[in-house]
Design a binder for these strands. Structure first.
Length: 370
DNA sequence: TATGCGTGGAA
DNA sequence: TTTCCAAGCAT
């Protein structure tokens, strides 16, 4: 007879006064909270968009993107009806592009299945693409005042110190534990403000380095501060270093046009546009590799290229080192699907990753010379 | 559970 | 310069 392991139940330390903690934190939050564009009201769609944008992304970075996005796509229906290319363009430069593709897919789902109303139950909202445990909790608590936790990196850092926890916050299991503990501290009727208040404390006071304990509104409750070990928490396992990748890129010029192609709809830089690239085997002549690529994969005859520049870009898991060559088109139409010739003006309609915008900037600067 | 998925700011 | 990291999710 096999039996599933019972989940461990975690409870707050006896000495932790959860009710008083929440009251003092909310008092501080009401007075000190930042004036942010997504705090104008609690419209579920506005909250939703903000939470997706804020994933792994700084508040100051998000602000201008959020304003622009809400102006272009003010409602669930507007986002659902928009061309994907336009939505991707509005996200250009923000990173983690699958977020916005999932967001639009979910907006379409909300439009057809829920009449355009963002669902207000954990079961329904968690089914939406791109909505995980944190985002579900954030939307439900902020927009609908459902008393559920919203545990992000800030919350784990604050609670690690507050409750003197040495759990590794890089491990998924720690988030489960945190959710249980946070849930037990949520004050009735103010779930949304409370969740935001913990995050606000993490962003303004309980910083990753040099926490500002002397100005902390909940100094008295912090068990790590009581022991003087706040600088050693939270415990966080180290990430692997990025893997280096050598790449060759061809900027194929035909008159005043350039060859670009759309990346696959899944994986790295999904759905964005780029110049044709090939991984550098490192053994042969660079230009020779590119000529073969363009002939075989694209059906294009091109003139032997000139070296243009080197571009480097580090992702969280990859380090790209890209050598860029400029080549003149001789003959042939692009065979490859999603490969097109466009002018540099037309290029501005397409969403490129930051890496390629560096190349485009260089080309634009040199276009007068050519 | 571990890994893939962006970008730019701060120290 | 390097490292860390910022309101995570999907697989």
């Amino acid at each position: 007879m096999t039996r599933k392991k019972q989940p461990t139940i975690y409870t707050l330390p006896d000495e932790f006064q959860a009710f008083d903690f929440a009251q003092d934190l909310l008092y501080w939050y009401d007075a000190q909270k930042r004036d942010l564009p997504w705090r104008i009201n609690r419209d579920p769609y506005r909250v939703w968009v903000s939470e997706i944008m804020l994933q792994q992304t700084r508040v100051e970075t998000v602000k201008p993107y959020y304003q622009n996005f809400m102006q272009k796509f003010p409602t669930v229906e507007a986002l659902a009806a928009a061309p994907e290319e336009e939505v991707l363009k509005a996200w250009e430069g923000l990173g983690y592009y699958s977020r916005v593709r999932n967001l639009q897919a979910a907006a379409r789902e909300v439009t057809v299945s829920y009449g355009g109303v963002v669902p207000d139950t954990p079961e329904e909202i968690s089914k939406l693409k791109g909505v995980g445990p944190y985002t579900a909790g954030a939307i439900l608590s902020i927009a609908y005042e459902v008393p559920v936790p919203a545990v992000d990196g800030n919350v784990m850092r604050v609670f690690s110190r507050l409750l003197l926890m040495d759990d590794d916050i890089a491990k998924p299991a720690t988030r489960i534990k945190m959710e249980q503990l946070v849930k037990q501290t949520i004050p009735i009727g103010r779930a949304g403000d409370f969740n935001q208040a913990i995050m606000e404390l993490g962003a303004l006071v309980c910083l990753p380095k040099n926490p500002q304990c002397l100005t902390c509104p909940v100094f008295d409750y912090c068990l790590a501060r009581r022991e003087g070990v706040q600088d050693t928490l939270p415990v966080k396992g180290k990430a692997k270093p990025p893997r280096p990748v050598q790449l060759l890129t061809a900027v194929v010029k035909r008159g005043n046009q350039y060859l670009i192609q759309k990346r696959p709809e899944q994986g790295l830089l999904a759905g964005l546009w780029e110049f044709p690239m090939v991984e550098d085997a490192g053994t042969k002549d660079d230009e020779e590799q590119l000529l073969r690529l363009l002939e075989k994969e694209y059906g294009l005859q091109v003139d032997l290229g000139d070296y243009l520049m080197n571009v480097q870009h580090t992702f969280s898991h990859l380090h790209w080192n890209v050598d860029v060559y400029v080549m003149e088109h001789i003959s042939g139409e692009p065979l490859k699907e999603n490969a097109v010739f466009v002018t540099s003006e037309e290029m501005s309609q397409y969403a490129f990753p930051v890496l390629h915008n560096k190349i485009i900037a260089e080309i634009t600067a040199k276009e007068e010379k050519w």
